Simulated scan of single mutants.
Amino acid sequence: MGPTASGKTALGCALSERFPVDLISVDSALVYRGMDIGTAKPDQATLARYPHRLIDIRDPAEPYSAADFRADARAAMQEITAQGRVPLLVGGTGLYFRALQHGLSQLPEADPALREQLSAEAATLGWPAMHLRLAQLDPTAAARIGANDAQRVQRALEVIALTGRPLSEQQRGGSGERFPWRVLKLALLPTDRAPLHERIAQRFDTMLADGFLDEVRALRARGDLHVDLPAIRAVGYRQAWEHLDSQSDAAEFRDRGIFATRQLAKRQITWLRGELDARAFEPERPGLLEHAEQALQLFLGSPG
């Protein structure tokens, strides 16, 4: 586990060279086909050498939920385990990790009237103001939800209004079902964010040079995609979509994309710090691979 651009994929691939593990992607953007450059999806050569499950399994027009991931990941884990190998889950989508291990809490169904009311308020006040309201009611949920993530802000406020309880508190409850695998959590958790921020900026510039905007143009040309879909709300894609709608110039688009990615990393780090049973590793630390190998060796060598 780790924030975006922290080196998770490279570490996962390196570990698969040494141990009998099969890789499963835990990333809410990598599931979508045709979204390769802006998601920093491993290239075809990497995927051919190090196959990842749960990459390119959905069309961007089809939403993919934490419940979908939980079902797909458990099926993949069962298949890998039956083959005498070990599932190695690699990614940064904390909600997916939590749903997989702890299940999904029974949240209330959507209330159309309440949603319409919240949307009307947002039309007047703006979603950042609605996010500030959420921060007062549920700071934990607000810390992991972006200020402009309209769908998730609306859902969190809706759940609070319907139940009188914070969304984060209810999500911690889980399903109560026992998770049937032993777990070792390896977290790439930087203590100094400056190198991470530099890598984020460098990677975004590389994406632009590799044709990210052309990729988004191709998605727009389909005609069936829009900014309210989860795929297009992915970090970078929303900012590119708005730029192509002439809502920002090239420099502003770059700044917005990098800022949004840094904010994502900040939320991911906040979530990881709450994973108290995780083994934390400094991504910049020399010998990272060796230390991760030692931890995994001890885990696999322990009795089941």
Rank of each mutant, 00 (worst) to 15 (best):
M1P: 09
T4V: 14
T9M: 05
T9A: 10
L11T: 08
A14S: 11
F19N: 12
V21I: 13
L23Y: 10
V26Q: 01
V26M: 13
D27I: 07
Y32K: 04
I37S: 10
G38K: 04
A40P: 00
A40F: 09
P42Q: 08
T46N: 00
R49Q: 14
R49E: 11
P51N: 07
R53V: 01
R53G: 12
I55E: 00
I55Q: 02
R58P: 01
R58W: 02
E62D: 14
F69D: 03
R70F: 00
A71S: 13
A75I: 02
A75P: 01
M77N: 05
I80Y: 01
I80V: 13
T81L: 02
A82T: 08
Q83Y: 00
R85A: 11
L88T: 06
Y96A: 04
Y96M: 10
Y96I: 08
S105F: 02
L107K: 09
L107T: 06
D111L: 03
L114K: 11
L118G: 01
S119I: 00
A120H: 14
A123N: 12
W127V: 03
M130Q: 15
M130R: 15
H131N: 09
A135C: 08
A135W: 06
P139E: 06
G146Q: 13
R152Q: 13
R152P: 01
R155L: 08
R155N: 04
L157H: 08
I160M: 09
T163Y: 02
G164V: 09
R165M: 06
L167C: 08
E169A: 14
G173S: 12
G173A: 15
G173H: 14
E177V: 15
W181H: 11
V183G: 01
V183K: 04
A187Q: 02
A187C: 14
D192P: 00
P195F: 07
H197C: 11
H197P: 00
I200L: 13
Q202M: 05
Q202I: 00
T206G: 14
A209W: 03
R217S: 11
L225N: 04
L229Q: 15
P230C: 02
A231E: 11
R233C: 06
R233F: 00
R238L: 09
E242F: 07
H243L: 03
L244S: 09
S246C: 10
Q247Y: 07
D249T: 10
A250K: 08
G257C: 11
R262M: 14
L264E: 09
Q268W: 08
Q268E: 15
W271S: 12
W271R: 12
L272N: 12
R273D: 12
G274I: 00
G274Y: 05
E275W: 15
R279E: 13
E284K: 03
E284I: 02
L288E: 03
L289N: 11
E290M: 07
E293D: 11
E293H: 09
A295V: 03
